Amino acid sequence: MTDSEDHASRRGRPDTVKPVTELGDGVYDLTLTVEPARYRAYLFDWDRPTLVDCGLPETSETLIDRIERVGIEPERLIVTHAHPDHDGGFDAVVDRYDTTTWVPEESTLAADNDPDHRYSHDDTVGPFTAVHVPGHSVDNYALVAPDRDLAVMGDAVLGADWRGLPAGYFVLVEGIYSDDLVAAERNLERLQQYAFDVGLVFHGSSVFEDARGKLDDFVDFPNKGDWDDPD
């Protein structure tokens, strides 16, 4: 077993990650790195080609390579929040593709190019509705496409296999990476107002079936079942 395979096994993740995966219906997973963390961007060929997040500064060349592999140039860039693994390629994408950009109103962007638009909770950006889910960061957003039954989760949650648990479920981004873990969990209730079957995450494996139901199970867990008082 190679070091990479061993690390993937210990993390509960497969070692067969493809750099570009068409998830269906004009949705492309652009995997930028696997080790030491799974970093991604997503490209949507829907109303107009839209890139959601843009990786680290040092993965900008990789991101552009992934976009070129798909063969669809983004016309719109949406940033879910201003952490380096989500907005680090902002200038590279804008300079290369002259994209129209959308950034949360709460974000402080470390980029030479100014955002074209600022968005806030419940705003519509193309097919997406922006849902403010602070906690991981003050500016963290999810993007829900109700007509497509899909949500891009930002870093509101990550794939459970990133923490060594079975794939196909959600967990919170752990405390060392989140500003306020209690708020991060509490604010997941905002996503329960929307319907979606697929939940795309940036770290770990995405959830492709009953994503809202699994989010409900995670959020509502303390209220489920009858618990005996240990005293």
Rank of each mutant, 00 (worst) to 15 (best):
D3V: 07
S4H: 08
D6T: 11
D6C: 01
H7C: 00
G12T: 04
R13L: 15
P14H: 12
P14K: 11
D15L: 07
T16H: 15
V17D: 10
P19S: 12
V20S: 14
T21G: 05
D25P: 07
D29A: 14
L30S: 11
L30T: 10
A37R: 12
A37V: 10
R38W: 07
R38M: 07
Y39D: 10
R40I: 01
A41Q: 03
R48E: 13
P49D: 08
L51N: 01
V52P: 01
G55Y: 09
L56E: 13
T59I: 01
S60D: 08
S60H: 06
E61C: 03
E61Y: 08
L63D: 04
I72R: 14
L77K: 04
I78T: 02
V79K: 00
T80A: 14
H86P: 00
G88R: 01
F90A: 01
V93W: 05
V93C: 07
V94Y: 02
Y97T: 07
T101V: 08
V103E: 08
P104I: 06
E105M: 08
E106Q: 15
E106V: 01
E106A: 14
A110D: 15
A110S: 12
A110I: 08
A110G: 02
D112L: 11
N113F: 09
D114Q: 13
H117M: 04
H117C: 04
R118V: 02
R118C: 03
Y119Q: 06
H121F: 05
D123H: 14
T124C: 11
G126A: 11
G126R: 12
P127Y: 11
F128S: 02
A130Y: 06
V131N: 04
H132R: 12
H132N: 04
V133M: 07
V133P: 08
P134F: 11
G135A: 09
G135S: 09
H136S: 09
S137K: 12
S137C: 02
V138K: 13
V138Q: 12
L143R: 03
L143A: 02
P146S: 10
P146A: 05
P146D: 08
D147T: 14
R148Q: 12
D149S: 15
A151S: 12
V152Q: 06
A156M: 07
L158E: 14
D161M: 07
W162Y: 15
G164T: 09
A167L: 01
G168A: 06
V171R: 02
V173L: 05
V173I: 04
V173R: 00
E174N: 11
E174D: 14
E174W: 04
G175I: 00
G175K: 10
D179H: 13
D179L: 10
D179M: 06
A184H: 07
R190H: 15
R190Q: 14
Q192G: 13
A195Q: 14
D197G: 09
D197L: 00
G199M: 03
V201F: 08
H203C: 10
G204S: 07
G204R: 07
E209S: 15
D210E: 15
K214P: 13
D217S: 15
D217N: 14
P222W: 09
K224P: 00
G225Q: 08
D226E: 10
W227P: 00
W227S: 04
W227Y: 09
W227G: 02
D229W: 11
P230Y: 11
D231M: 03
D231F: 12
